[in-house]
Design a protein around this nucleic acid. Structure first.
Lengths: 330, 330
DNA sequence: AACGAGCATCTAACCGGTTAGACTACGCGG
DNA sequence: CCGCGTAGTCTAACCGGTTAGATGCTCGTT
């Protein structure tokens, strides 16, 4: 592998000039010298060593993304969107899968910090992820889920309360007389938002409601739904807080021989590509994944400094879209 | 951030000793000195700078994984498996998504090489991925798909010909009189293996066969399947070469009101977790994802040197498992 | 007492970039 | 014709580790 010194030698200059050329350096370079350097670089197929550059510049041009479960299509789509956004700005994305294990989440943070990523995008299932290691290292972070009020960090997310409200209203408007809420397994800000929106939508109506919580997985949701749909409080329609859970419900309905939507309506949240092709197609609240990803990368890469030059934290809510498909249209 | 020199100063030694302690260095260190260094390191919360270490040692302890589509659950599960295997050996995994675009695949290779990953795991949809950049950089590679005979590289994969044979035989044994092959879109080693296995299974029988090719996505497969199932050569059963395509077929059947498996049987390949929860549950050839991932990382990290000390290339075939579910059991 | 072996440690070069400071040459104003 | 500003270049220090070579010291031999 040729180094900047090799190129300099061939071009008859010093390695400083090579650096100036490749960075439109802090110093000007004569047209002639630039020419010779570029020619020499091409001849040797010179590629600056990213490690050395990062060491002295203190920037690695890489972003760490931590997701709870890369095998969940929503997070996979999100990861892809973030990678696209990062690549557009010449950044590399490192993806870490915490497998919804708190300990693993922390390990990934440490690992990313050791590897000197420039910033971190976090999707945690935890209410109050421990951002201490990140803050100690002085890295900018953006969470892609709601944070509790006390957390001093940026977050980009849709308004889950409003999403729950809209989805539940949709079921009401379709005329379902009993509605169930299938929420996530933890008592987090997100789950509370879902519950609040759900309650707001049904309050003042005469519909029967019931609730369950399940893991964010098809298997977990299917298991809970099987019990639920056989129970006395089995609802005629279900708002599931993720598409994965909704798919689990669809599976449970199939297993019990319930026709969807004639005997059970289902709506989820996330709007993954797969929801369009399930049997039957799944109604869902679609998240603007690419917009969120773009904004996250923008904030982290271009920095987010206010008039005073301070880094500011932002907490932005994104618009979502209600997609009505067969699973909830009687 | 404290450096090794800071630790050395506090411990009253030179930075070399600090390095020796942290690496069980190439030189011995007295118990007393080791003690003082560790104490000082703890006091300062010293973490060796991975960048500097990588620069001088020439090893980054990271592996690059290139997949054609991280939003495809099979590749997501594979990525997760590789990450687990890599983490076990203290390596970090970088995941790149080529979006099945050849140009993007090459860009990812370059990007990984620039970032000095120690090795690369490649899942290409291409028959003959261009490994030149990797070879020039002298990095070990493992492909997780069949390579054409001429390719001088390691590969770990199941035997798709045998998989196709087993799946097709299964449909025959279930008594279906017409069988369709839904293959991938390219003329690659993999698609030829599927075709060969399919042909071997049906040869000598009197079943009617037909074929189609579609992209490896639900949407693409659904579109092709819709046309196919309405055509004159519409089969009674379909062997799809991936689960994603099989799910597209299930969707097409649903759209056309065809009962699965009574009017159409479907079987896929990959055995993703989602296949267990589709409507109806999908029969599939399950790949030993974690075993393949473990072996890939083992080969790359621990090296794969034969008796002569040469790096050898390995081409291993893994066992798969036929999972029969409702989609193909009449 | 003298010498070699072996251990522990320190010094300094090195990995391959970046960049401030020193230096040269040139053009222009006075 | 001199002085100064500036563009262009080079030298060398620096980022933070790793590690070979040099050094000093102790201990066992003869």
């Amino acid at each position: 592998m040729p180094t900047a010194r090799d190129v300099a030698k061939l071009a008859g200059t010093s390695n400083a000039v090579v650096s100036y050329v490749f960075n439109n350096g802090p110093r000007a370079v004569s047209a002639a010298a630039r020419e010779r350097v570029l020619k020499a670089a091409k001849e040797l197929d010179y590629k600056p060593n990213a490690l050395a550059r990062a060491l002295s510049a203190g920037k690695t041009r890489s972003i760490g993304l931590i997701v709870p479960d890369i095998a969940n299509p929503f997070f996979a789509e999100l990861a892809r969107a973030v990678e696209i956004a990062a690549a557009e700005r010449g950044h590399l994305l490192l993806i870490g899968d915490s497998a919804t294990v708190e300990e693993q989440e922390r390990r990934l943070m440490e690992s990313f910090i050791e590897r000197k990523v420039d910033s971190i995008i976090l999707v945690s299932l935890l209410d109050e992820p421990d951002l201490k290691p990140i803050n100690v290292a002085g890295l900018p972070v953006v969470a892609l889920h709601p944070l509790s009020a006390g957390q001093h960090a940026s977050s980009l997310t849709i308004d889950y309360e409003e999403a729950a409200y809209v989805a539940t209203r949709h079921l009401l408007e379709e005329g379902y007389q009993s509605i169930g809420l299938l929420n996530g397994p933890l008592d987090s800000v997100g789950t509370r938002q879902h519950a609040t929106g759900f309650e707001r939508a049904v309050s003042g109506t005469s519909v029967t409601i019931s609730r369950r919580a399940s893991p964010i997985s098809r298997a977990g949701a299917a298991e809970v739904a099987l019990e639920w749909l056989r129970a006395a409080d089995a609802p005629r329609s279900i708002y599931a807080t993720t598409d994965e859970q909704a798919h689990g419900v669809l599976f449970a309905a199939y297993t019990l021989g319930l026709n969807v939507p004639d005997e059970l309506a289902v709506i989820g949240v996330d709007g993954t590509a797969a929801s369009e092709f399930s049997v039957p197609p799944l109604s869902s609240i679609r998240q603007p994944t690419q917009s969120i990803a773009n904004r996250a990368v923008e904030i982290l890469v271009d920095g987010n400094v206010d008039a005073d030059g301070d880094k500011t934290i932002v907490n932005e809510l994104f618009d979502f879209e209600l997609i009505v498909r067969k699973s909830s249209r009687a």
